[in-house]
Simulated scan of single mutants.
Amino acid sequence: MNPTDTPVTTPRPRLLPWLLRLHRPGLAVWAALVAVLTLTLLAMWGPLGDAAADGWRQYRACVGDGPCGYDQDAIIRYRDVYTYTTFAVIGLPFLVAAWAGAALVGREMESGTAHLAWTTGLSPTRWLAAKLAAPAALVAVGTGLLVLLHHLAWSANRNRIDTSKSWHDSPTLHANGPTTVALALAGLAAGALAGLLWRRTLPALVAGLGFTVVLRVAADLAMPHLWPTVTRVTGLDTGYVMEGVEVDSGLVTAHGAHIADPGCGPTFVEGCAEMYAKLDATGFYREYHPESHYWPLQLTTTALLLAVAAGLTVTAFALLRRSTATTRTPSPTPTPDPAPTREEAAV
């Protein structure tokens, strides 16, 4: 090699333009989805909610048995739009997980695009960091905006529309708070890890989506136990007071013990008073979370989901580092020239 020759180096790809060009379809779909849901939630907060509230005001003003005119279509329209929009918002984490497993990582591992990027001077660790950083920011901003607008629309109409969902209704509870944002980030990390594990598009999609579903169910089960409950005792002739997120319920005995409820009902039901007398029961108890526990429940569950997302991300980087380290071939060591023979030395 001529010492004056300069070595030819392959330029490193510019990360942001490369990512935008590579995932342009997914970015377009995400932007369109966020835009449509934003406009829908603004309509619920404004004209749709106002029309439904007027319809309920007309309905409550009806008296007597005569014909009553009220805007039933506005009431039904708001109810349907609220239901569909709420499920769309809480469904975003599963969409993110499926996309991350299939398109973000799984397809690139299967097609060899990831290995091609690594040969252009982009290390595997930097490749994965770039893969996760930009989508994580877009997912956090998009879901955060939609959750905020959903909470504002629900809060503006909860006392005006008779069919408004309660704060502890499960879809409303998650669509109104940061647990959906945290679950979306966990879904992104789960999809990326699934793509690195299976290295194929369809299995990574199914695995990332399935793990996010399991995580959502686990979060729902854990949420009521992440904050101390409030216990309320009512008389045997009253029954339970159904409000808030229930954790446990049953009968209270004369000695203060909590026992299982046989399910008979209040004492005015035939035979129930005699049954409770045999059990030495004096009332019903119910352990639950009132509305004042809304933010403690939201924040503790969000922290738990973010911890899981961080654990999945660390696991993905460790897996990538280990898998790429085993595939690297060590650089060949130079072989020394053989010693000259006697004949070659004599010459």
Rank of each mutant, 00 (worst) to 15 (best):
P93L: 08
L152W: 07
S123Y: 06
A133D: 01
W18E: 11
S331Y: 12
A184D: 04
A134G: 14
A61C: 03
C264M: 04
Y78V: 00
G66F: 08
V29Q: 08
T113C: 09
R286N: 03
G195D: 11
H174T: 13
L41E: 10
A182D: 06
G106C: 06
V8E: 13
A219F: 01
T341A: 10
G244W: 05
P332K: 06
D237N: 14
T300N: 10
L39N: 03
T267Q: 03
T326C: 05
A182R: 04
Y240G: 00
A129D: 07
M1E: 14
V63Y: 14
D337M: 11
I90Q: 03
A133K: 00
T315K: 09
A88M: 14
S111K: 05
P13I: 11
W127Y: 15
H150G: 00
T327S: 15
G49Y: 06
L279E: 04
R321Y: 05
G121W: 06
W127V: 01
V241N: 14
L41C: 04
D71N: 14
L209N: 00
V147H: 02
L145K: 01
V147R: 02
L193V: 07
Y78T: 02
A190W: 06
G112H: 07
W18N: 12
C68L: 09
R158A: 11
L20D: 09
L196I: 11
P135G: 04
A130R: 09
H150C: 02
P93Y: 10
V89D: 04
T40K: 02
P224V: 02
G64I: 08
A53W: 10
H289D: 01
L205Q: 05
L215H: 05
W45P: 00
I75S: 04
A35S: 12
L27D: 02
G271H: 08
A194Q: 01
T234L: 03
T201E: 12
N157P: 06
V245D: 08
T119R: 15
Y78W: 15
E108A: 07
M242W: 15
K165L: 14
T212S: 12
L92W: 13
Q298D: 12
T125I: 08
Y294P: 00
L15P: 01
T231W: 01
D5E: 15
A207P: 02
G256V: 04
G195N: 08
V141K: 07
P334Y: 05
L37E: 09
A219C: 06
I259P: 09
P262C: 07
L196H: 13
P178V: 07
T333D: 13
G239S: 09
P334R: 11
T341L: 09
L37M: 12
A88V: 08
L148H: 14
G49T: 09
A31E: 11
A182G: 10
C264H: 12
A204N: 08
F268L: 03
V252E: 14
G191F: 02
F87D: 10
I259H: 09
P296H: 04
P228R: 11
E344P: 01
H225E: 11
L152E: 12
C68S: 11
L132Q: 04
W99M: 10
